[in-house]
Lab assay of single mutants.
Amino acid sequence: AQASVVANQLIPINTYLTLVMMRSEVVTPVGIPAEDIPRLVSMQVNRAVPLGTTLMPDMVKGYA
């Protein structure tokens, strides 16, 4: 199964992502692939992302 990117903490709206904020986990539904974690660093979330939430492409500015 493919691992997705999951929030490792509460990520406030407009926060620039860093490695410590994200982890990879096999979840349903599938979100942003874990292999894209390096690409996500320094990208901004466009909403608050609670701890344990799967990151979806529409949550990250400029990802989709």
Rank of each mutant, 00 (worst) to 15 (best):
A1L: 15
A1N: 08
A1Q: 07
A1T: 15
A1F: 09
A1W: 05
A1S: 10
A1I: 14
Q2T: 09
Q2S: 11
A3Y: 13
A3P: 14
A3V: 06
A3S: 15
S4M: 02
S4C: 04
S4D: 01
S4F: 03
S4P: 01
S4N: 01
S4E: 01
S4Y: 05
V5E: 02
V5Y: 01
V5C: 04
V5R: 01
V5M: 02
V5F: 01
V6H: 02
V6P: 01
V6A: 04
A7I: 07
A7W: 02
A7S: 14
A7Y: 01
A7E: 01
A7N: 01
A7M: 08
A7P: 02
A7F: 01
N8C: 03
N8R: 08
N8M: 12
Q9D: 11
Q9E: 12
Q9L: 10
Q9A: 15
Q9N: 10
L10Q: 15
L10S: 09
I11K: 00
I11A: 01
I11G: 01
I11C: 02
I11R: 00
I11W: 01
I11E: 00
I11H: 00
P12I: 04
P12H: 08
P12Y: 05
P12Q: 08
I13K: 09
I13E: 15
I13V: 15
I13W: 10
I13Q: 13
I13H: 14
I13P: 14
N14S: 08
N14F: 11
N14W: 09
N14L: 15
T15K: 05
T15D: 08
T15P: 00
T15F: 07
T15M: 13
T15C: 03
Y16G: 12
Y16S: 10
Y16I: 06
Y16C: 04
L17R: 00
L17S: 00
L17T: 00
L17C: 02
L17W: 01
L17V: 04
L17D: 00
T18S: 15
T18Y: 04
T18C: 04
T18L: 11
T18R: 05
T18I: 07
T18N: 06
T18G: 07
T18D: 05
T18E: 11
L19M: 13
L19P: 13
L19Y: 12
L19K: 10
V20W: 08
V20R: 08
V20A: 11
V20P: 13
V20Q: 12
V20K: 14
M21C: 03
M21L: 10
M21R: 03
M21I: 03
M22I: 12
M22R: 00
M22E: 00
M22W: 02
M22C: 03
M22Y: 02
M22L: 07
R23K: 07
R23Q: 03
R23F: 04
R23P: 00
R23C: 03
R23I: 05
R23V: 05
S24L: 05
S24K: 06
S24P: 11
S24C: 03
E25L: 06
E25S: 07
E25I: 04
E25C: 04
E25P: 02
V26F: 14
V26T: 09
V26W: 05
V26N: 12
V26K: 03
V26A: 15
V27T: 13
V27K: 06
V27C: 03
T28S: 10
T28V: 12
T28F: 04
P29K: 05
P29V: 05
P29I: 12
P29C: 14
V30D: 15
V30T: 14
V30S: 14
V30R: 03
V30Q: 09
G31F: 02
G31T: 02
G31Q: 03
G31M: 03
I32P: 00
I32N: 00
I32S: 01
I32D: 00
P33S: 10
P33E: 06
P33T: 08
P33L: 10
P33Q: 04
P33W: 11
A34W: 12
A34P: 09
E35R: 04
E35C: 03
E35G: 09
D36A: 10
D36Q: 09
I37E: 03
I37S: 08
P38D: 11
P38N: 15
P38Q: 14
P38M: 07
R39I: 13
R39F: 14
R39C: 10
R39D: 03
R39W: 06
R39Q: 11
R39V: 05
L40R: 00
L40V: 10
L40P: 00
L40K: 00
L40M: 11
L40F: 02
V41H: 07
V41I: 08
V41N: 05
V41G: 03
S42M: 13
S42W: 06
S42D: 07
S42P: 02
S42Y: 11
M43I: 04
M43K: 06
M43T: 07
M43P: 00
M43C: 03
Q44M: 14
Q44N: 07
Q44G: 04
Q44F: 07
Q44D: 02
Q44I: 13
V45W: 01
V45T: 13
V45C: 03
V45E: 00
N46V: 10
N46R: 09
N46C: 03
N46F: 10
N46A: 11
N46M: 15
N46W: 08
R47D: 11
R47W: 05
R47T: 13
R47V: 06
R47M: 14
R47E: 12
R47P: 02
A48E: 15
A48Y: 14
A48M: 11
A48W: 07
V49N: 01
V49R: 03
V49W: 02
P50T: 11
P50W: 07
P50L: 08
L51I: 13
L51E: 13
L51F: 13
L51K: 10
L51Y: 10
G52Y: 12
T53H: 09
T53N: 09
T53P: 01
T53D: 11
T53L: 08
T54Y: 02
T54S: 06
T54Q: 04
T54G: 03
T54L: 05
T54F: 02
T54R: 07
L55Y: 01
L55E: 01
L55Q: 00
M56G: 06
M56A: 07
M56D: 11
M56Q: 07
M56N: 07
M56H: 14
P57V: 06
P57W: 09
D58A: 14
D58M: 08
D58S: 10
D58R: 05
D58L: 08
D58K: 05
M59Q: 07
M59T: 07
M59P: 01
M59I: 07
V60I: 13
V60N: 01
V60Q: 00
V60S: 01
K61W: 10
K61T: 14
K61P: 14
K61R: 14
G62I: 04
G62M: 12
G62K: 06
Y63S: 04
Y63D: 03
A64W: 03
A64E: 09
A64H: 11
A64K: 06
